[in-house]
């Protein structure tokens, strides 16, 4: 029971990260009906950028796990703000260069272009930053013991680390802000209009190009945030983290019902929990296999996902 609880906490933490990435997939799919294959790599760019900044902070400004809490928080805010900016620029550029010119081209064109873009990003970062994983000291340390139990000689404690609290709370805050934007602002309305019918939206005077760009930027910001959390959580990152995380986040988006933002978050949490539980109770080696299998099963048996609307193929 205690073990399960601990895994649940770990799963929720990981799931929050997947959920944040999944939103980017879901929003882009909603608005232009394609999988942004490069989204996982935009997440990676966010992750690597925050790594570099944290490293600079550590080497040149003495930032470490022992610094005062407020300083760490301040540093992280700066880091994530810049990482969001960088990721946004990347995703915006990708859309401009690789997807926008292909609107109206044949069906596979944007998809292949996206695959190309994903390779470009990975290789670009690999060449610029070398392929080695980049480890770093734990920045957010400490935590709370929720309960403990004596098992023979050993005590088993259920703990929640400050890092986990940070991840869960910041995800909640971000999600709330985000839901507000989508539901209450004219920007959100424009996005929803484009989702339903791009042509109609443009007839009604909505600037579709701009709305799509902003969607990509928003997705990138969330992905960058997730990238930083991911790197802080695992205290390591490299050019390849976007690949597996990207597929899993995509799985989350599909599981939640592609096009649905709460669905993406829910799917993310589920995938996080499934992955962690699988590692805890079955085998760590096959955790990715478990997540990918979920993707396949969901697509086959429940293609509309948990919160998505079933779609009848228009003939």
């Amino acid at each position: 029971m205690e073990y399960f609880l601990q895994q649940l906490i770990n799963g929720l933490t990981l799931g929050s990260i997947y959920g944040l990435i999944a939103i980017g997939y879901t929003m882009v799919y909603g608005i232009i009906g394609m999988i942004n294959f490069a989204h996982g790599d935009v997440f990676m760019v966010g992750s690597v950028t925050s790594f570099i900044l944290v490293l600079i902070g550590g080497v040149s400004f003495g930032l470490s796990g022992n610094s005062a809490g407020i300083i760490i928080l301040l540093a992280l805010v700066l880091v994530v703000a810049y990482a969001m900016l960088v990721s946004s620029v990347y995703n915006w550029t990708i859309e401009r260069v690789a997807y926008r010119p292909l609107r109206g081209s044949f069906r596979l064109a944007p998809l292949i272009s996206a695959i190309g873009m994903s390779i470009v990003l990975q290789e670009f970062v690999r060449i610029a930053q070398e392929a080695r994983p980049k480890p770093i000291q734990k920045l957010v340390t400490g935590g709370y013991e929720l309960m403990s139990k004596q098992v023979g000689e050993q005590t088993f404690a259920v703990t929640i680390t400050n890092m986990q609290i940070f991840i869960i709370i910041s995800t909640l805050v971000l999600m709330t802000a985000f839901t507000f934007i989508i539901q209450r602002t004219s920007l959100g309305r424009a996005q929803r209009a484009c989702e339903q019918d791009t042509k109609m939206a443009s007839l009604l005077g909505i600037n579709v190009d701009r709305t799509i760009s902003i969607t990509f930027i928003m997705g990138a910001m969330l992905a960058a945030f997730a990238g930083m959390l991911f790197f802080l959580h695992y205290t390591e990152t490299d050019f390849f983290v976007g690949f597996a995380a990207g597929i899993k986040a995509f799985t989350a988006a599909v599981l939640g019902g592609i096009g649905s933002i709460p669905g993406a978050m829910m799917g993310g949490l589920l995938i996080g929990i499934i992955e962690v539980m699988w590692s805890a109770y079955f085998s760590v080696e096959y955790k990715d296999v478990a997540a990918f299998t979920v993707l396949v099963l969901v697509l086959i048996f429940m293609p509309q996902g948990l919160l998505g609307k079933p779609e009848v193929e228009k003939v």
Partner: peptide
């Protein structure tokens, strides 16, 4: 591989 990726994008365009 960077070149392959760039080639894919350029070809599609």
């Amino acid at each position: 591989m960077l070149a392959v990726g760039v080639a894919l994008v350029l070809m599609m365009r």
